[in-house]
Design a protein around this nucleic acid. Sequence first.
DNA 1: TCGGTATTTCCATAATTATCGAATTGTGGA
DNA 2: TCCACAATTCGATAATTATGGAAATACCGA
Lengths: 112, 112
Amino acid sequence: MEADHVIRALAALAQEHRLAAFRLLVEAGPDGLPAGAIAERVGVPPSSMSFHLAQLANAGLVTQRRASRSIIYAADYAAMTGLMGYLTENCCGGVPCDNAAACGPATNRKNA
Amino acid sequence: MEADHVIRALAALAQEHRLAAFRLLVEAGPDGLPAGAIAERVGVPPSSMSFHLAQLANAGLVTQRRASRSIIYAADYAAMTGLMGYLTENCCGGVPCDNAAACGPATNRKNA
DNA sequence: TCGGTATTTCCATAATTATCGAATTGTGGA
DNA sequence: TCCACAATTCGATAATTATGGAAATACCGA
């Protein structure tokens, strides 16, 4: 995952309503949720939610598909896994799981 | 870690120069680096870097201490670990290390 | 106390992001 | 075809964030 892409993903999650929407979608699983339901549960007007969902989609964190009149959004777990991988590798010193996701200096990487 | 705090941390990392600075500090380890060296290596003027370092500090991702004339910044690994923990728990469906940090629907959490 | 170095704060400006009502597009049923 | 519904796009505005030079602050050695 490129640094540029990572920044888009981080920026996408760094907003109250978008983080709430993404958490909702992660919980919802692969079936996802229609845009209107997300807007209602997050508590923002549809046009605002549409703006935020577009940002999440642009960052690659969610997918969208049409089902009849609704557009269903779903979390892209692979993208989130990729983001976590980048952060672990580049911002945690490369310590992955040995210590319950504890981050440490980069020295560990070379020894491990 | 509160959602509000998480958003500040994500926003702090969601910027080219700040992400570069933070990666540098993670690599540098607990000894950290002086502000001037960070600015030079990231390639931004000192006043701009100071602005960005303040944001990282405000988000709790870095610590600062004075050493003679320099101010040394260092990555706060505990904060990063906390951020990773929140993302794993709330944005990855609670799948931690079983699958090399693979994210999945929230269903897994309840079964595990 | 004075000069020099490291860093931050101040300031103005440019650029980006968030908000949300109104208008528009796409879809399906009668 | 016509109507109603779901969602997006448009447009105008407000708010936040980024940038970098100049001035101010903190520290140290002589």
